[in-house]
Design a protein around this nucleic acid. Structure first.
Lengths: 139, 139
DNA sequence: GTAACTGCAAAATATTTGCATCCTT
DNA sequence: AAGGATGCAAATATTTTGCAGTTAC
């Protein structure tokens, strides 16, 4: 049986290698977003730091993942939904950062509301970043 | 006559030094946001890199400036409006990044629209980052 | 077989920390 | 005078680049 990861890589016109499989696996195993550091930690020792950089960059270019800015200096990445691999992204959902457990998740179902800009400004893309307490931490 | 910068520093309970004056001056001279690198460049050679780090951090703590995340790995900073120095910020405005000239500005007049989160999530702070073409680049 | 991917080494950058000195109050 | 701020040196951490060996197709 072919691995799930392999199908995804193939669909995105990427050659299938152990490194890519493994990183992709990490993303599939959880719904939260991962930073470069997270990946290095979770992938274990036998992984070159440089490969992680290059893999993330390729995944980004191919639209397999998207980047999520943050207020501390660490960008996180999350899987894109299926239909965004065509080159242009449709990441119009809200990102949530939990101030308690520190995880970042995509709220796929929450669409970023429209915003009216002053005259002269043209909006191309909107990122919305909400911080607070997540579902798991809140009880 | 007392300098404008000095009054601001005093109001924020910061001792008045050349370094702080100069960095604050940079923020006052323009309406866009500045990254650490921007400040180093604009401040000229006679400035220790470390002082910039420490000054920005102090300004942040005192609520004199706020940080603006970005999709590339560089956080930018912008002056807060007067009434946000009390410790808690009211930075509920939209930030705009121009993809043409690269500048980041605060759209003070554009309030971040409310967003409805799924059950269990509690929102504490919302950041909205719009990218596109700014007023100056658009003609 | 060829082009692409990886690991290693090293360079280039960026950030943090400790400490002695200087400046603000 | 005392506490805080700065500059310098150095320790860390992060990211990028070149190249030779390996792997996918």
């Amino acid at each position: 049986m072919e691995k799930n990861t392999d199908a995804i890589l193939r669909k995105n016109h990427l050659s299938i290698t152990d490194g890519r499989r493994r990183i992709l696996e990490l993303f599939l195993q959880q719904d939260g977003a991962l930073s470069h550091g997270d990946i290095e930690k979770k992938a274990g020792e036998k992984f070159d730091r440089v490969t992680v950089y290059r893999t993330l960059q390729v995944f980004l270019e191919k639209g397999l993942i998207h980047s999520i800015p943050s207020v501390d200096n660490s960008i996180r990445y999350a899987l894109c939904k299926d239909d965004c691999s065509g080159g242009r992204h449709r990441d119009d959902h809200v990102h949530f950062v939990c101030t308690s457990c520190g995880t970042t998740v995509c709220l796929e179902d929450v669409v970023v509301p429209a915003v009216k800009l002053p005259g002269g400004y043209v909006s191309e893309q909107v990122e919305m970043l909400v911080s607070g307490i997540c579902k798991s931490c809140n009880h």
